[in-house]
């Protein structure tokens, strides 16, 4: 049942959104990786998952906001069962580690997909990254962080609209990066953000 629904979901996303993968800086492989992408629409998670080749997709678990994806049984079913999402508390109670579920997923041998902006942007600019990605890079120094730029998604379903414009989106995967020894948090976050921004350059397209 879940296999069928997730297969159907991925197929539908590919049909409606295109969700073409453009592997610019690395090739798809089944190594454990941390994919991090810009965030501008509710379809972002689905689009990246659909763009990944099936063997890689099976090993990859997206992070999803608990307050949105856990809010109704249908959303929870899609997130937890179909996409095997890791639900993250965006406003964690003091003293708890919000990254613990992601850490467990990585320790379990899975790749993860995160959106370091934390919330959906307006698609015009990429917001400052939150520090979670830096923490993960420190806890998993031997795991590649792969920048992903989702092109066009903000034009398909922008924040504040319910009208879908059926243009096709592309997920561009850039060159992997890792935190340099002793690198400051701010410098690393800026470097990671620049890696995503660089993929947005239209000049390097196609």
């Amino acid at each position: 049942m879940t296999e069928l629904v997730s297969g159907l979901l991925i197929w539908l996303v590919r049909l409606l959104l295109g969700a073409r993968a453009d592997w610019r800086g690395c090739a798809p492989n089944s190594e454990r990786r941390i994919y991090f992408a810009n965030h501008s629409s509710h379809f972002d998670t689905l689009a990246v998952m659909a763009a990944l080749p099936p063997p890689v997709r099976r090993l990859t678990r997206p992070a999803a906001a608990q307050d949105y994806w856990g809010a109704s049984p249908a959303r929870r079913f899609i997130a937890e069962r179909c996409l095997r999402a890791v639900l993250i508390d965006r406003a964690p109670p003091a003293g708890t580690d919000p990254l613990a579920p992601l850490q467990r997923a990585l320790e379990g041998g899975c790749s993860i997909l995160i959106f370091p902006e934390g919330t959906r942007g307006d698609g015009e600019a990429i917001a400052r990254f939150r520090s979670g990605i830096f923490q993960l890079s420190q806890r998993f120094p031997d795991v590649d962080l792969v920048p992903v730029y989702l092109d066009n998604l903000q034009r398909i379903l922008p924040k504040g609209s319910f009208l879908i414009v059926p243009i096709t989106c592309t997920a561009r995967f850039g060159a992997p990066l890792r935190a340099a020894p002793g690198e400051e948090r701010g410098a690393f976050l800026e470097r990671a953000r620049a890696a995503v921004l660089q993929l947005a350059e239209p000049g390097s397209a196609r």
């Binding site: 698609g123 034009r155 922008p158 009208l163």
Partner: peptide, 12 residues
């Protein structure tokens, strides 16, 4: 429209 840029105001 996939290749032609548009702005948020063109959505409708």
């Amino acid at each position: 429209w996939t290749l032609t840029p548009s702005r948020r105001g063109d959505h409708v």
